[in-house]
Design a protein around this nucleic acid. Structure first.
Lengths: 198, 198
DNA sequence: ACCTGTATATTGACACTGTCAATTTAAACA
DNA sequence: TGTTTAAATTGACAGTGTCAATATACAGGT
């Protein structure tokens, strides 16, 4: 089908999201701009306004979709190791690390409240799903032990989040544990697990 | 002394930094703007250009000063607990946490390379000082044990960095360990220490 | 086929932003 | 006193997000 006019573009909303993701991945959060996207799509500077009320709405859509992507990855990867605590923690951690290192700017967008609308219920629900997975994993193990699972969950979450962001902001480089020879990103999780299963 | 004219303001550079810190602390990194600062100081929109080549230069100055502030806090606080590993780790951690929670936007600025100029040597040196303190603390202890101190250092650093950022971005709230009753931010460090001293 | 309502795209304006170039002013120095 | 130099001013340019008014095209009912 040949496009005869730009009016009623048809799938402009989808094209906007696609271009926005490309800008986000290739040039960073700040590079995602309404007018720039419109220009790239050969459409008037105000055309996107029909589909996204403002910039925040657009970024919220990007964040929500990214969260859902991440949650489904976690759910898939964990399914095989659900019965072994150590393996389950490593699986969860691996999924987060892989996602963060593969999509640096999506990962940053996920957790920076200044960009997305934190009142958005869909976004909030997708965020909660990540944390729910985490407490579920740890909860299975700690039923008998007299420990607060929340502290362990927050410790692991903080460790992963911090490591990913330090890597993404290039405050830290890829590396290997000098003694065991395993990847640093795995080694630091082992340090924490020793504290959990001890 | 009464100011007779705005030409050769005298301490404009200092005033700019001061106003920039106020904007940073009260309204966030994005709120720090050349023209806005000039307007607040009652000076022409291009006056700051004589003292800071561009916005990045200004933000780099803010980051460098903040780093030095943090480093000196760490050095002061650690001096009393240098001989006990557990206490030393808690002291270091406490300093980072306190700084981050007290100056959220300064903390964010410190680690986000997209704002400050990461080629700046003064900034780089101040950053390295933080990490040097950390490895020094852990290095004292691990001399005998067959472990890679770097992995422990990065684990602790990641944990602290992640926790602070989760708190600052309001992805996490202040809380207490349900079992021990101590502050969550202390409890998660204990989880990790159990893995280190085990 | 025709009118009408609605969704969508366009144009134009407004107030911002950072950065640059040309100019003016004041102080410092010889 | 005259000249150089540092520091502030003005003006312009290309961008940005957002809003209001307008134009276009499609869908549904008559």
């Amino acid at each position: 089908m040949i496009k005869t006019s730009n009016y009623h573009h048809g799938d402009l909303r989808e094209k906007i999201l696609q271009t926005a993701f490309e800008l986000l991945d290739n040039e960073g959060i700040e590079a995602v701009g309404i007018r720039k996207i419109a220009r790239l799509l050969g459409v008037a500077h105000s055309a996107p306004a029909n589909h996204f009320k403002n910039k925040q709405t657009l970024l919220t859509a990007l964040a929500t979709e990214s969260f859902r992507h991440l949650v489904s990855k976690i759910e898939n990867d964990i399914s095989n190791e659900a019965d072994n605590l150590r393996l389950a923690i490593h699986s969860f951690s691996n999924t987060i690390l892989e996602f963060g290192l593969k999509y640096p700017n999506r990962y940053k967008l996920l957790w920076r409240r200044e960009y997305a609308d934190d009142q958005d219920t869909e976004l909030g629900a997708a965020m909660d799903d990540v944390y729910a997975q985490l407490t579920h994993i740890l909860g299975e193990h700690a039923k008998n032990n007299q420990v607060d699972v929340e502290s362990q969950a927050i410790a692991l979450w903080s460790l992963l989040h911090g490591y990913v962001l330090l890597r993404l902001d290039e405050n830290l480089q890829e590396g290997y544990d000098e003694v065991t020879g395993i990847k640093r990103q795995v080694a630091i999780i082992d340090v924490l697990i020793d504290g959990i299963v001890a």
